[in-house]
Design a protein around this nucleic acid. Structure first.
Lengths: 149, 149
DNA sequence: TGCATATATTTGTCACACTAACTATTGGTA
DNA sequence: TACCAATAGTTAGTGTGACAAATATATGCA
C-alpha cells in the first residue's frame, strides 16, 4: 500500500476536525451563545439524560474525567448546571441541568443544527453513511473496543 | 434531511480525530520519540522544504502563527531546529533543520508510517479516496477557499 | 523624506486533551 | 473488623488551538 499517501489521513482528519470546530465556535461567538462547542455537547447530553454522574457523562461524550471536571466547572459558574451530591455515594455527583440551562439548550438546539448543516453542502446521505462507517472503523481499529453508532 | 442525525458528524469527527492523535502520541511515547505528534508534523515538513519562514510553514501545516511559534520554540530547545535570521527581511526567520533534527526525521519516518497504518485495517484504497474526498469537501464548505489534495 | 499601511513574529488569555498523582469514599474479603 | 483494591472526582503540568493585541520591520506613495 502507498504508505506515504495513506499516512496523510491523519493530517486531513485533524485539519478538518479543527476547521469544523473552529467554524462552529465562530458562529457560536457571533450569535453570542455564551458557551463553547464542547460545553454545548455536554449541555445537550445532560438535557437528554438526567442525573448522570460525571464519569457516566464523560463516557457519553468521550472526554476524560479531568476535561469534564473543568467543563462542568465552567457550566456551573455560568449557572447552567448544578452538582447535586449523590444520595448514596458521597464520592459522586448527580449532574442537574438548571432551568436556565434547559432554556439555553432549547434556545440553541435549532440554531446549531443549522450551523452543522453547512458542512454537508455538495454531499449526500450516502456520503454521510460512508463517512460515518470509515470514522467508526478507524476509531475501532485504534481503540480495540466495540462502539455503537 | 435528517438534521439531528447529520449533525452527529461533528461529534464522530472530533472523537475520531482525537483518538487518532492520542493513539499516535501513545506510540510516540512508548517508543521514546522525544517529540509530540504536532512537532513531528512540523519536523517532517521542514525536512521536505528548506529555508521556510514561519508563516510559510504555518500555511503548510495549517496551524496559526502563534501555535507555530510555540512549536518551533520547543523544537529549538530540543536542538532539532534553528531560527536563522532572514538575510533580507529582519522581521523574519529561515527555519533550518539541524543535523540532529534531520537524523530524528530519518529515524522516525518509517516507524511513524507503521503506526499510521493501523487505522486502515479493514479498509481499502477506495475507502481512503472516499474519506479524503469527503474530508476535503467539508473543509472547503466551511472555509470557502480552494485547497489542493 | 515621511507617514500610512501591511507583514512577520511574539505575547497573553482562555479552553481543551492527556497523563500522572492525589483525596475521599466504597465495597469486598480475610 | 480491619484492610485493601477499586472507583469518583480533582489538581497539576505540558502541549496545542483560537483569537486579540503588541512589537518590529518593510513597503508604497504622497
Amino acid at each position: 500500500m502507498t504508505q506515504e499517501l495513506f499516512a496523510r489521513y491523519s493530517f486531513l482528519l485533524d485539519r478538518t476536525a479543527r476547521k469544523v470546530k473552529q467554524y462552529a465556535q465562530q458562529q457560536f461567538k457571533t450569535g453570542e451563545f455564551d458557551v463553547t462547542v464542547d460545553q454545548w455537547l455536554v449541555l445537550k447530553n445532560l438535557s437528554e439524560n438526567e442525573l448522570l454522574s460525571q464519569t457516566e457523562l464523560a463516557g457519553l461524550v468521550f472526554k476524560d474525567n479531568p476535561t469534564l471536571t473543568r467543563i462542568i466547572d465552567l457550566l456551573c459558574k455560568k449557572g447552567y448546571v448544578d452538582r447535586v451530591p449523590h444520595p448514596q455515594d458521597r464520592r459522586s455527583f448527580q449532574l442537574h441541568l438548571t432551568e436556565s440551562g434547559l432554556a439555553k439548550v432549547n434556545e440553541l438546539r435549532p440554531k446549531i443544527l443549522e450551523i452543522r448543516e453547512k458542512a454537508w453542502e455538495n454531499l449526500n446521505e450516502r456520503d454521510f453513511d460512508e463517512f460515518k462507517r470509515i470514522l467508526n472503523t478507524i476509531y475501532q481499529n485504534l481503540d480495540g473496543q466495540v462502539i455503537e453508532t
